[in-house]
């Protein structure tokens, strides 16, 4: 849902970042307003996963230039846990397993960290169980997963559902979902996409990082951005994704080569 008067939640300006000595992001610009769903597409290695990790504050990535403001504040100076508490959520492409840590307890501690930041009271075990059972419905998840260790022995689809369950509990303002569709069969994809759609509202925004069009059949984006070589090369509406689906990514390479030959580094706005 696009409203030009909606408040800006995330403002990314000329963002540059590297991992070890390799520059990955080379000037990303993106403005996300409340109520919007953005899809960031691109080939492997285009920098789209890096963008999500930099926004969440992964320590392996170093920001070398540019800025990111979240609701007007400098996001980049905050620790990862602080970003999460104020409403930035990263749904992982490969959620890690944490043996020995109960999923239920993990979800409760995380939920309370976010609630504390919002000035809401902490939920005790019983109140939290009520909440989590209600939110399980969003992803049609079996309560038995609560009793297990975080992601341990979960299938790919179960891990992704667990990510969306966390999103349902944390009620983020900006949710960044990194390749949430990868490794999902068609039923799991439908459930996960259904969860994302239920959670999207006029006061929050979603950034979908994806390689394929198929997720966008289930979640309709307001904007589609194509990333290549660490930049957003093109921005368009949902039809841009369909174009990518039909023409593949080869034309992106051509366009990129042409731009570089011309020495032009500014992204092309297509509207």
């Amino acid at each position: 849902m696009i409203r030009s008067d909606a408040p800006v939640l995330l403002e990314i300006r000329d963002l540059q970042a590297r991992v070890e000595d390799k520059a990955i992001l080379k000037g990303v610009n993106l403005t996300v307003r409340a109520g919007e769903i953005h899809a960031v597409m691109g080939r492997n290695g285009s920098g789209k996963s890096t963008l999500s990790k930099v926004l969440a504050g992964h320590p392996a990535y170093t920001v070398t230039g540019g800025s990111v403001t979240y609701r007007g504040d400098n996001l980049l100076e905050l620790d990862p846990e602080q970003r999460a508490r104020i409403g930035v959520f990263l749904g992982f492409q490969y959620p890690v397993e944490i043996p020995g840590v109960s999923n239920l307890e993990f979800l409760r501690v995380a939920t309370n960290a976010r609630r504390g930041e919002k000035g809401e009271e902490e939920l005790d075990t019983f109140a939290f169980e009520d909440l989590v059972r209600e939110r399980l419905k969003v992803v049609q998840m079996d309560p038995a997963f609560l009793e297990r260790s975080v992601n341990e022995g979960f299938s790919g689809g179960e891990k992704k559902r667990n990510e969306i369950l966390q999103m349902a509990l944390l009620e983020p303002v900006v949710a960044i979902l990194d390749e949430t569709d990868s490794g999902l069969d068609i039923d799991a994809l439908r459930i996960v996409a259904g969860g994302v759609n239920q959670l999207a509202g006029p006061d929050n925004a979603t950034l979908l990082i994806t390689h394929y069009q198929r997720l966008l059949d289930a979640i309709t984006p307001d904007y589609v951005h194509v990333m290549a070589a660490g930049r957003i090369l093109r921005t368009g509406g949902k039809e841009l994704a369909l174009e990518l689906e039909q023409r593949g990514y080869d034309w992106v390479d051509e366009e990129l080569a042409a731009l570089e030959a011309a020495g032009d580094r500014t992204p092309v706005e297509v509207g």
């Binding site: 969440a56 504050g57 992964h58 320590p59 620790d79 990862p80 846990e81 970003r83 999460a84 508490r85 959520f89 990263l90 992982f92 959620p95 890690v96 944490i98 993990f106 501690v109 995380a110 960290a113 976010r114 930041e117 966390q166 944390l170």
Partner: peptide
Amino acid sequence: QLFYLQSRGIG
């Protein structure tokens, strides 16, 4: 693992 927990608001 630490980043995963941190990215859920856990110090």
